[in-house]
Structures are given as C-alpha cells and as structure tokens.
Amino acid sequence: MNHTPTRRPGIAAVMSFETRKLLAQKRTPITLVVAAVIPIIIAIVMNGQARPPKDTLFGRFIHDSGWSMPLLLLGFAGQWLLPLLTSIVAGDIFASEDQHGSWKTILTRSTSRTQLFVGKTFVALGFALVAYVILATSTIVASVVLIGHQPLVGLNGQVIASHDAARLVIESWASVAAPLLGFTCLAIALSVLTRNVAVGIAAPVALGLVMQLVGALGGVELIRPLLLTTPLEAWHGLFADPAFSGPLVVGLVVSAVWCIVSITIAFVVFRRRDYLG
C-alpha cells in the first residue's frame, strides 16, 4: 500500500476548503445580501425624506446630487459597519475551529500550520474585500440611479463637475480599503489570540468605537494619526479646495502597520501554540 500522497497540498487547497465552509454557513450569503440591499433601502428612505440630515457631512446636499449620498453613507459606514462587515468572517475563521474542536482534525492532515494560516487569512481578507466592494457598488449605483449624477458641492462650497465627483467618490470609497483590511487583520489576531468567536467579531467593532472616541478628544494630536479609525476619514481632503492627500498617505502607512503587526502576532502565536482541545 503506497501511503505517500502524490501531490502536496498548497495554500489553494486550504482556501478552497475554507471557501466551501463559508458558503455552507447561512451567515456568509446573508451578509453579502445585506451588504447589497441595505444601501438601497437607506438611499430610498433618505431620498424620500423632505428634510435632509444637514448636520452630517454632505447630508444637506443629498437631494441635489447623487454623489452626496455615497459620501454620507461612507461616513456612517466607517463608524461601525465596515469593522463589523470585515469581522464577521475574520473574527470567526480561526476561533470557530476552537469552537468546533476541529483544530486536531485539520492540523493532523498534510498541510502545514503556515499553509493553514495563510489560506485562512487570504479567505478572510478576500471576504472582507468582496463584502466591501458589494457595499460600495450598491451604495453608489443606488444613489446615482435614484437621485442622478448632478455636480457636487465640495467642502469649501466649490462646485465639482459630475465626472470629477464620480472619480472622487470612487477614490473615497477606495481609500477606506486600507483601514478596512487593517480591521480585518485585527479581527484575525483577536480570533487567534482569544479563540473566542464572539470576541473575534465584536471586539474590533468595540475597539473601532473606542478609537473614534479617543480620536475625538482634545490633546491627542500625536496619537490620532496612529488610530485605525483616522484613515477612515482621510478622504475628506479630496473634497477640500485646494484638495490635499497627505492624510490618505499617512492612513495607508498606518493601516499597513496595523495589518503587519496584527498578522505577525497572530502568526507567531498560531505557529507556536499547543493544541490541547
């Protein structure tokens, strides 16, 4: 009996199995459907209101330009929706193995711990990006279809032509991809460290709210740029006159540092851990 596998499994094998596991759980398609449908409902409801939310960024212009609504919703989503959207899978993908007691099932196959870690991490990041792209696309398309693609009024009162507004709205949504991946990596780290699904999913959202609170305090100018929530607002400079992109660059670097630190900690702990359960 020849027992040696002819093919060695790779990261793709882990990703394939993880993707099938995700698709077999109802919450995965439900999350993606919610990401697609909720922005449409919000756009319809807000467009139907006679009095726009004037005290919010771009809120006063939602009836005037279809490019306002995606920016209003981006500001709202950054507060807790984006961290939650990313944590639903990232906070669960490692801790659920502890919950099911299945580490001993998969760690005794032919895949290495490194392959398992990388495969799971890629799937978590991939899901976060897919959910985010669906949310962004649904928001922008629904707003433009419902309201139209009129010119947009910028933060300094300047009028931004429709085609420029479209580009800036897309760039704004694209700019939150980096902190979103930062939150995903943070959720992965919490999932590995705590081995608890509830903590893995809820803690990044709670930490995001705490960071927003800290960022809103006075006298924290040195700390504020280092918070993972600050890059979620870095797109504001794109709509100033003149526009500035310094916060976007800083936000990119800060998000990358959060990603690297979180993943490194998670990887080291995962590789060295004794699995007793």
């Binding site: 060695r8 499994p9 094998a13 882990v14 199995f17 099938r20 596991k21 099932t105 196959r109 032919s110």
Partner: peptide, 8 residues
C-alpha cells in the same frame, strides 16, 4: 475537504 488538505 480533508482530502483537499491531503493533496486530494
């Protein structure tokens, strides 16, 4: 799934 982790 487990077979995949063994190389198929």
């Amino acid at each position: 799934g487990l077979a995949r982790l063994d190389g198929g």
